[in-house]
């Protein structure tokens, strides 16, 4: 049973960032802008968030030992610090996505090109700034954010160990984002207008919706969520940030397509990939799999191969927003 608990907990670490970032991509694509810059945006979000955490943690270390042992620097401060790092990551993501929005909305540039530029810029910028600030490119942080067990809920049998032990508050934030995204997209005026801009911007414009503004909103929302997703990915899986999110932004793009641009299906897709990733990274901890002589590289390939196969069968009837990738101009004849 402990193996199942372990796998579920590991799956959470991989699924939640994918979920958050794919939901971000969803907002952008429903507004009509393809955002392949998710990878770069995640990197910059994680970079800003981790730098923020690192600054506070090194400041705390610099203080006298008496203060360090005080109640303020216990569990509470750790969670608060993480909580504060999230808006920092979101702001960084929003900032870089503005450049993508400007190129693809105002300048009507090829959306894939400016996305590629951001993906190239992000790691270079993160390494450059880190090296200029601290001479090494890695930014270390102390993982003081893990919750051994959520008070009260963690002791419930079965559900406790599955969902409320060895976890992070970011997991629950991820689920909150999912619920919020669903409500915003389907139950609000904003969501309806956003989707209209991605399906048929000319019609949206004809009834007085500002297509440019809606698309900016979609892209900035995606930048914020991708930034948060980057931080959420780094916190449980590492103790230093090395200017990479291991291709999770690209994987989130696949999750988005696999999830057919719908929040509920995106959740399912994110957990599917999360499970595959969790198996790939910790199969040696699972007795059943450890016995089978499959090399680790094959496990690592699995999520990508499965994605390809799934896409091959599902892409014929793609429910992608119809106007995605097409710049909108008022004089358009399409």
């Amino acid at each position: 049973m402990s193996v199942v608990y372990f796998l579920v907990q590991q799956t959470m670490f991989f699924s939640i960032p994918l979920l958050i970032v794919a939901l971000g991509g969803m907002f952008s694509e429903h507004s009509g802008v393809i955002n392949i810059a998710l990878e770069g945006t995640m990197i910059l979000g994680a970079f800003a968030g981790i730098l923020f955490i690192n600054a506070f943690q090194s400041a705390a270390l610099g203080q006298s030992p008496e203060q360090l042992s005080g109640p303020l620097f216990g569990q509470l401060s750790g969670q608060l610090l993480l909580f504060l790092a999230i808006p920092v990551a979101a702001a960084a993501g929003a900032l870089i996505s503005l450049t993508h929005a400007y190129a693809s909305i105002h300048m009507k540039a090829d959306q894939v090109i400016s996305g590629t530029a951001i993906n190239m810029f992000a790691p270079a910028f993160a390494i450059y700034v880190a090296r200029m600030l601290r001479t090494v490119q890695q930014i270390p942080f102390t993982n003081e954010f893990r919750l051994e067990s959520v008070p009260g809920l963690g002791s419930i049998p079965l559900i406790g160990p599955l969902f409320f032990q060895n976890t992070y508050i970011t997991t629950y934030i991820g689920f909150l984002i999912l619920i919020a995204a669903r409500i915003v997209l389907y139950k609000t005026r904003f969501g309806l207008r956003l989707r209209a801009c991605g399906e048929h911007p000319q019609s949206a414009d004809s009834v007085g919706i500002n297509v440019y503004r809606m698309r900016y909103a979609g892209v900035i929302l995606s930048g914020m969520l991708a930034g948060i997703g980057g931080l959420v990915f780094i916190i449980p899986t590492s103790t230093n940030f090395n200017a990479t999110v291991s291709g999770y932004g690209f994987l989130a793009l696949a999750v988005l397509i696999f999830g057919q641009w719908k929040p509920g299906r995106i959740l399912a897709a994110a957990f599917f990939f999360g499970l595959l990733k969790a198996v790939a990274s910790s199969y040696s901890g699972v007795p059943l799999l450890k016995g089978i002589p499959i090399p680790s590289n094959i496990y690592k390939m699995m999520p990508y191969i499965v994605t390809l196969i799934v896409l091959a069968f599902t892409s014929k009837h793609s429910q992608a927003p119809k106007a995605e990738g097409i710049p909108y101009g008022k004089g358009g004849r399409e």
């Binding site: 530029a117 270079a124 090296r131």
Partner: peptide
């Protein structure tokens, strides 16, 4: 740090998207 070259290239790509325009 040599990453400044990648930054330059990224900015060139970004503006080459405008270049077509």
């Amino acid at each position: 740090a040599p990453q400044v070259i990648d930054i330059i290239i990224a900015i060139i790509i970004y503006f080459s998207a405008f270049a077509l325009l």
